[in-house]
Every structure is written in C-alpha cells, then in structure tokens.
Design a binder for these strands. Structure first.
Lengths: 240, 240
DNA sequence: ACCCCTTAACGTATTTGTTACACAATGCCA
DNA sequence: TGGCATTGTGTAACAAATACGTTAAGGGGT
C-alpha cells in the first residue's frame, strides 16, 4: 500500500480532545542501597483491583508542569529529597494496564541515598523492599521495575551514576558491593580497585571507616569535577 | 518537609479526566542510509505556526492501540514497510511544545533500508534529508531528532542494529562507512575488518559487489542466529 | 596482653584486545 | 596495456584485563 497524503498530527490542525478519555501519569522507581541490598520504595495500593499489593509512587501530570517536574514533585513530596538522580526511562501505554481506564504512564528512575532521608518517610504505607524479593506488583509495575533495573544495570557500566546510591564518603568495599549487587556478578577485589583508581574519579578523603569489626578501610568520594572534564573525550568503540 | 499520606494515583481511585485537556501522540524519527549519508524522512508542516518547516511523521494515539502499535501504524502508512527496527526512545512533554495546546509525544526511532521502500513514498510533501544538514525543524522536533540520533550512536556500539540500515547483502566498506557516518569517527580498515570477523556475526555470501568502478569486494550478511546465541553470555564491565 | 577474626592494602605475570602500519592483487575503464 | 580505486592480508608494539597470595590493621573476646 503506497503512502498517502493523509492528515498528520504535525501538518494538520488537530482536535486537542480526541474522542476517548485517558490520563497521563508519571511513576517513579525509587532505588536505594541499604544494608548491602538494592531496594525500591513502594506504597501499598488501596485500589480495589490491587488491594494489598505494592505499587510505585506516581501521580497525574499537572496542567502546568512538564514530565520531569512531575516526577521531581512526586519524589519531593514522598521522600523530602530535593536533589537526587532522576531520569526518564520509558513510557508504558498498554491499553489495559490500568483498571480504571486508559492511563499512560511515564516511568522515571530515581537513585537516592537511603541514609539521607530515611527519617523523613512518615507515611506508614511506604516501605523499602529488596528488589530481588519482589515477585508481583500492582498494575504493570513489576514490568516497569524490571525495565528500570535493566536500565540501571546498563547505565552504571557507562556512567558513574552509582555514586548517587552511596553516601558522600564510602569505602571501596561498599562501592564494589553495590556494583556486584546491581550487576549480579563478582569482581576480583584487587582488579576492581586498580580499575577504579585509574579512572581518576575517586578522591581520597584521608579518613577511615569507623565502627567496623575488622580492619577499617579508607574513605573516598566521587570526584565530580574530574568526571566532567574527562567526559568530553567521548569514546567510541564496538562492544557487541 | 516530611512525606504525607496524600492521595496517590496508584493507591486512590482517580478521575480519568483531569481538569485540563491534552493530547498524546507518537512521532517517528525514521532514519535511513542513502548515498553514503544518514538521512531522516520528514514531512512539510502546514500548521500556521510552522508553515514550510519540516517535521517528523506522527499521529495521535488511538483509543484501542498501544504506543508501539501507534508508531508502527505511522510507519506502515507512510513508508509501506511492515517490518523494520522500531524502538521507543523518549517522551517529550514540555508545556509549550505544541502551539495548539498541550501535546505530549512519545518519540520512536525507526531504522529502515532506504532502497527497500523508496518507490512507495508517493506523498510529495515527504522527503529524505541528510541529518547533518538539518538546522531547524517545526515544534521541538530538532531536539527529538538529536535525542534519537544520540540514542542511535549509543545503540550501534552496543547491539548490531546497524544492519537494519543496510541491504540484506553488503560490503565491508559499506558497513564501515555507516558506522563512520553515524559515529563521526574513522576506523582503520584492517582493524575494523578483523574486529567484525572475530564477532562471528557476518556470513560470507560468496558474492561480489557489482557495478563498482574498482576492485569489487565480497558481500556479507548479518548472521542473526549467531547473534541470538552469543547474546546470552551477557557481558559486564565498567567502561567509564 | 594476647589471640582470633575479618577485611585492607599491595604487585606481578599471563592473556587478551587494540592500535598502527604497507604492499600486492583485482576489476573497470580508457 | 596502463592507470585508477579499492580489496585483501599480517605483524609488532602497546594497552587493558585477568588471575592470584601475603602481610598488616583494628575490633572483640578471653
């Protein structure tokens, strides 16, 4: 069938209100690293169809806000955090994904430092869940979670976003452990250190771990400035 | 500010019709490789605000279709192709991105073989444009294009999607040239060949180029089966 | 004070991958 | 038959990834 000169949304004036009703929401996959485990912040659903199941934190898009702002608002309202890694991942629009009707949702991935804000969560329907324990969720939220975790796995291998999950100062052991948890592999400790030192992204804080029942390790911080500079030399290669 | 037990779209029944009107569309960044250049298929806009400017192909989401189906439909209607690489990239929802009101659009990246369907484009407002020539577009479409090209650059380094831009059988020169065009770098010819042969993704078709005014090269095809098998051994490493 | 436990800190040899580089052979065309 | 454009091929130098074991520090218990 040849292409025809048919109306196109971008070339022909459109009716802003199509003849079906739908809603647009954002949903946040809020991930944190706590007690050696990757966790996600969920809320218990009260919707009849999903009574007692866990769901992501989300909200409808407001008339005067863009998508990034809406997801930021959800995070701020729920966790009290105002500065965190937050990135759009994917939009989910299956026709039957919401029992109340047609709801399209834009999924965001947020990486937070659990220690920073754990005191601020007062809503007792909110809980941190180990990602690996979650088998089912309300709506298509398990699919969204899986998609975001896969995006995270890819992302931490390409950019140093992982530091968003750690405190300002961290030990190399912590850092290695977060990587291992998220990627599901184990690294050789000496090679891991070597690799990370040669990136030049770690600042030695000249401090030691405290209150550990073994030889304390040095603490480091992420050298954002060094990263900004090296980022320019964009590297090209074929990995597949 | 502590988080409150406030209503949440996923926990509380919602009004499907929020008190503002908006529309949801899909827009396709249709890329092809033609005459040694990366091109994008665009349509001339008739909207008063963007008269004469070029825009992406898109349409409103229908009540009974999901996002992937909507983008597929746009492609099929416009190019006649029914089987192509098509992947969601990002959703754009800036408040003022559309002059007619609030329109949120989900951008898709499509990779097509220009030779396969160029005869089917009958709509004369449609044209292929060299991506590198495009300076401005209607709406925020230049931003969407740039975002999709960046996604393509990343993607071809991670997965062998590049073969979607070539004909079934291609020469190594063609293959190298597409990479170079998209990534904006040059590879050493011998190292490029070595690398690609060691991937095991190329099948020697035992055919030669024809109608070239130089020594003809061998033709190869993408060995999809070999890729499916090797894909399982998912590789982990830190590149940054 | 001492011992035990746990984990830190450290270096080298081997293997693997990446880069740089030059020349003869093929087919087309005039 | 010579000239042009491009194919096809190998190797050495260098860089990066891997595998691997020993000594040292601090905490806790006795």
């Amino acid at each position: 069938m040849p292409a025809l000169a048919k109306p196109n949304i971008n070339t022909t004036p459109i009716e802003l209100m199509p003849d079906f009703q739908f809603a647009l929401s954002v949903d946040c996959v809020i991930l944190g690293y706590d007690e050696g485990v990757l966790k996600v912040l969920l809320i218990e659903s009260d919707l009849p169809a999903y009574k007692g199941q866990w769901s992501l934190l989300g909200d409808l898009l407001g008339p005067e806000e863009d998508l990034d702002s809406a997801s930021y608002r959800v995070l701020k309202e729920r966790t009290g955090l105002t500065d965190m890694f937050l990135e759009q991942v994917k939009t989910f629009g299956a026709v039957d994904r919401h029992p109340a009707g047609r709801v399209i949702t834009v999924a965001y991935l947020a990486l937070v430092n659990v220690k920073d804000h754990q005191l601020k969560i007062t809503d007792n329907a909110l809980h941190w869940h180990a990602v690996s324990d979650i088998k089912t969720m309300a709506f298509d939220h398990k699919l969204i979670l899986d998609t975001c975790v896969a995006a995270l796995q890819r992302k931490i291998q390409e950019e140093p976003v992982i530091f968003n999950l750690l405190e300002e100062k961290f030990s190399l052991r912590d850092l290695q452990h977060v990587f291992e948890q998220i990627l599901g592999v184990e690294f050789d400790r000496r090679n891991f250190r070597k690799k990370l030192f040669t990136t030049g992204l770690l600042t030695d804080e000249n401090e030691m771990e405290k209150q550990v029942r073994h030889r304390p390790g040095k603490l480091y911080s992420f050298n954002r400035k060094a990263y900004e500079q090296m980022k320019r030399k964009t590297f090209v290669g074929l990995q597949f």
